[in-house]
């Protein structure tokens, strides 16, 4: 059993996977651990910085924006604030994958933001970033709507995403960012 987990993670090039509640402390711990891992692997400083930056934005994006899933367990309503966080290293890329529940009513806006970001080239992303930075007000969560754009800029690649319908109220939103290793 344990061996099959190990092999499964190994063939899928997974360094780290977490499923559970996302807290600020957890995000700190993961960043600390991954930074040590990148240092230990002797990763190029430039790549390391990009990976770290993308991790920060992806993990904090989940922390700030996941929607609490209301589920009933033994007829009791409980709030599920769990998410999936995954970091891997393939031959050509590092990747950061996050997965969390979002309310269906938010899906259209999220999808259109991601489509917009993916339609931009490097220069357009720079302009979009500057204009939102300049005009955008901070949301009540202290985020500026810049996260996705920043991830796309640092990643240098298109973002992968998916909305998997879970119920009439929720979808499972997954986001994948890649950072080229050279």
């Amino acid at each position: 059993m344990t061996y099959s987990y190990y092999k499964n993670m190994q063939v899928n090039n997974i360094i780290f996977v977490y499923q559970g509640e996302v807290t600020a402390e957890l995000v700190s711990s993961i960043l600390h651990m991954m930074e040590n891992k990148l240092d230990g692997d002797g990763e190029d400083k430039k790549i390391k910085k990009k990976v770290f930056n993308v991790m920060v934005e992806c993990l904090q994006n989940v922390y700030h924006h996941l929607d609490t899933l209301e589920v009933s367990v033994d007829d009791t309503e409980v709030n599920d604030r769990t998410a999936l966080l995954m970091i891997g290293k393939e031959e050509k890329d590092y990747y950061v994958i996050t997965g969390n529940h979002v309310l269906n009513e938010r899906v259209a806006a999220l999808r259109s933001r991601l489509e917009k970001v993916n339609s931009c080239d490097k220069n357009e992303l720079k302009n979009l970033y500057q204009s939102i930075l300049n005009d955008g007000e901070l949301s009540e969560k202290g985020t500026a709507g810049l996260g996705m754009i920043d991830i796309a800029r640092k990643s240098g690649q298109k973002l992968g995403y998916d909305f998997h319908p879970v119920s009439d109220k929720y979808s499972f939103f997954s986001l994948e960012a890649k950072i080229a290793r050279y």
Binding site: Q60, L133, N134, G142, L146
Partner: peptide, 12 residues
């Protein structure tokens, strides 16, 4: 060395 996007607005 690093800064996140929510800091970027505060810096502005």
């Amino acid at each position: 060395e690093y800064f996140n996007t929510s800091s970027s607005k505060c810096l502005l």
